[in-house]
Design a protein around this nucleic acid. Structure first.
Lengths: 102, 102
DNA sequence: AGCATAGTTCAACGATCATTGAACGATTGA
DNA sequence: TCAATCGTTCAATGATCGTTGAACTATGCT
């Protein structure tokens, strides 16, 4: 039985929850990497933040539950992808402002 | 002796600290009110969030220390003002995105 | 001088957060 | 079938957060 990784409807997403999710250096960096709009593996080797895989999983979950990303299950491995177009429609200019910030 | 209310140089302000400061409903609402760029009194009567004045002072301090606002002392009363132009220069598009969000 | 007012600071509290390490579940491949 | 792999979940821990109520500081007013 395959688990599912529910993400909220974008219309239910509150700005303050998006900001809370992004108000963390690790998650902000993840989003910046995801800014290319492509699906990226969750593999620990791809995200070397010097933390345990459980901590990384926690951050992925936080982003997903905030409506910022969704999860793609590919057998044993997972990808994570930014909900770029949806976020741009819901909060115009926000992603760009975050990603372009020096 | 008059207290001073130091605000950081905008060049030292980190995006993640701005996001942390704004990741709170009360502070986000304060910033939205301040979005007109004018100085607003800190008076408790102007900000009826149903909390004690000490809690409000905590939020004002959080915003100031994050580099989002500064304090203007007028004798016994204080004003708070958004660092609009500085923020726009430091994080282009961020304030607009936050303020225009539905 | 004396008192009222505006706002800050502080200690205390309960709640939430980020992290670890271990256990668990699902999938792949030998 | 069995073991290895990928990622999640869980309990525990220490740190930080938002709030309260009380004390305190600074200023203005009479």
């Amino acid at each position: 039985m395959s688990a599912d990784y529910p993400a909220p409807d974008m219309s239910d997403v509150k700005l303050v929850d998006v900001l809370s999710a992004l108000a963390d250096p690790t998650r902000l960096e993840i989003v910046r990497v995801l800014a290319d709009g492509l699906a990226h593996p969750k593999a620990t080797t791809e995200w070397d933040f010097g933390m345990q895989k459980s901590a990384l999983a926690y951050h992925f979950k936080t982003l997903r539950e905030a409506g910022i990303t969704f999860t793609i299950v590919n057998g044993r491995t997972h990808d994570i992808q930014l909900r770029k177009d949806e976020l741009d429609a819901r909060f115009p200019g926000l992603l760009d402002a975050l990603i372009n910030a020096r």
